[in-house]
Write a protein that binds this DNA or RNA. Structure first.
Lengths: 337, 337
DNA sequence: TTGAAAGCGCTAACAG
DNA sequence: CTGTTAGCGCTTTCAA
């Protein structure tokens, strides 16, 4: 009942296992193995339903045809959409994806990288949390392909695919300003990551460029692991203490969603007198009444770029001198609704 | 620069690799290896940052500590939410998840199972498509733990975790009937899977129990790979040809979302004269104006059950006679909004 | 209490 | 053109 091994095939076909191996790996031609032998062996392979044991192959060749995907939370639509597309393209090249969620916890992220390492994944796609620079550096030193995305780690020379978050923040704030908003609150997550910071900086710059002084009172940082109640509470404080707020810019998709729930709960209407802008486009924002304007990230392109870089590095000759790292910055698109 | 192997550790510690292996696997006690040796070896392991090569270990032991997750589409919130929870519990037991999306394509599903097989994943969690019964049977014959979820394959004796879809369909239809609806359309996906069928049967039964004759004119089956335009077109036909419709029951989350977009586009108001019910709860339905009533599936419980069954089978002694398969049917909850 | 050695299934260098 | 053989890194039996 055990699956057949290459040995069984060889025995049944009355050839050596080398021959079978060559046929398996498409090297039959090059080795000038006779047509008949190939035919016979292939027949037996089919007949016995033989599938090479990938684990043994991996041990021997050192590659697992597996890519490790490390994100913040696979159930976040942004990440699951990326995961979906990456999987698709990788599958076509014979790669599988194994994923893990960090929950923004550097210790967990580090642990995940360790697990992936011991499992010998061929390449890493990481939405990094601060504090894992060293681990990534280690990967790089070992010449393992790595692409980071969503957030950049500025002091690391590594492939990355990000969007222009500064521009994203700027465009959102500018839109609100042009709509006559004077007191635009900024609600964000309490994690010091590059992409979030840049969204804020863009927002700040837009205010300054239009002669508005950023108000620290209306800058709210919500802990990543905050409960719904806690988030609501913080938003309540924001609005209670700053009744003059006439717009809110949410720096992440899930905070915007929570914000919408909160506003609904307190029955604060979103209308000409009070506007909302979110980051990332999702069905929720399109379908909301009124629809919510968003800074849209080109998810498809992001995924495409990531997997392109990975596959290209995977197929490159590692002994050659390292080519330039890919640094991709994609534009965001402001969608007015 | 190559990572240290067990051999390196042994050499440096001046013991045999057997000793190191025993220490690594917590068998030091049982083998009565001296405290000092253990200390010394552990020190060196830490010092060299040695991590056992999981691939080699897998080849030897035959298990990979990896669970294969096969779903319809990882970017569907229902599946990504399940994926998230499964990952979490599996991680705590030292298991990793590798996922794949079938897109409801039996050929792809079969291919995925093959890939997972050759990669020797220890267990399978599958949201099955019709047509892969044989492959699953094969897995079962090989005594590999399998749990299917979301949909059941009625002729297979396999562990499953599903919700009571009949009841779900019934409750939704009954709700609409009690709200005075007379012409309730049923919009569903064109895939003959058990769970979708049962949703329909529940709906049908509810109508019959209340003396309403199901109308085949208002039963729409939309191909799984339908484009947005095509879906819209089919919905348009539904409404154009059946102006008497006063409610729609969407049998899947994504169809309901598309439906909401369509209704918005044609400006058909959802109000006392026209109601919508969806399957699966999502932010979109909560936040919609008016909010949409849904048949809620207990995602957390589903994930929990799945992983419990898997871990339990994984830890069970395979040589023992197969215990009863777990057949879990969880109730749905109708949420009136 | 520890070590030697076989072998998991496969690839590939080398020999014929 | 095909076969022999040496490992990849680890676990585990058996012996000492």
């Amino acid at each position: 009942m055990k699956p057949p091994s290459i040995k069984d095939i060889a025995k049944k076909a009355e050839v050596s296992i080398t021959t079978v191996s060559f046929i398996l790996n498409g090297k039959a031609e090059k080795m000038r193995i006779s047509k008949e032998v190939i035919k016979r062996v292939e027949g037996i392979i089919l007949e016995l339903g033989f599938k090479p044991n990938q684990v043994a192959r991996s041990l021997r060749t050192g590659n697992t045809k597996t890519i490790g995907l490390i994100v913040e939370d696979i159930s976040n639509p942004f990440f699951s959409a990326i995961a979906r597309r990456i999987e698709d393209k990788a599958y076509k090249k014979g790669y599988k994806i194994t994923y893990s969620s960090t929950e923004n916890d550097p210790a967990k992220a580090r642990d995940l990288i360790e697990m992936f390492k011991s499992r010998k994944v061929d390449a890493y796609i990481i939405a990094p949390v601060p504090g894992i620079e060293e681990d990534i550096k280690q990967l790089l030193a070992d010449k393992i392909p790595v692409v980071i995305f969503d957030r950049n780690l500025p002091d690391l020379d590594v492939n990355y695919v990000v969007v222009d978050n500064f521009e994203g923040g700027y465009s959102a704030a500018e839109f609100l300003i042009k709509k006559g908003r004077k007191n635009i609150a900024f609600v964000t997550v309490d994690v010091e990551v590059d992409q979030i910071n840049n969204r804020y900086l863009g927002y700040e710059q837009a205010l300054k460029d239009h002669g508005i002084k950023p108000n620290q009172q209306t800058l709210v940082k919500i802990p990543f692991d905050s409960t719904e109640e806690d988030t609501d509470q913080r938003l309540k404080v924001l609005f209670d203490e700053n009744p003059e707020i006439d717009a809110v810019f949410f720096s992440t998709n899930y905070l915007a969603v929570r914000g919408l729930f909160f506003l609904k709960k307190i029955k604060k209407p979103i209308d000409d007198g009070f506007m909302i802008v979110a980051y990332d486009d999702q069905d929720v924002f399109k379908i909301h009444t009124p629809p919510i304007s968003v800074v849209d990230q080109p998810i498809e392109q992001i995924a495409e770029k990531i997997i392109d870089i990975i596959l290209q590095e995977l197929s490159a000759d590692r002994s050659l001198p390292q080519t330039e790292r890919s640094k991709v910055i994609l534009p965001t698109k402001f969608i007015e609704r």
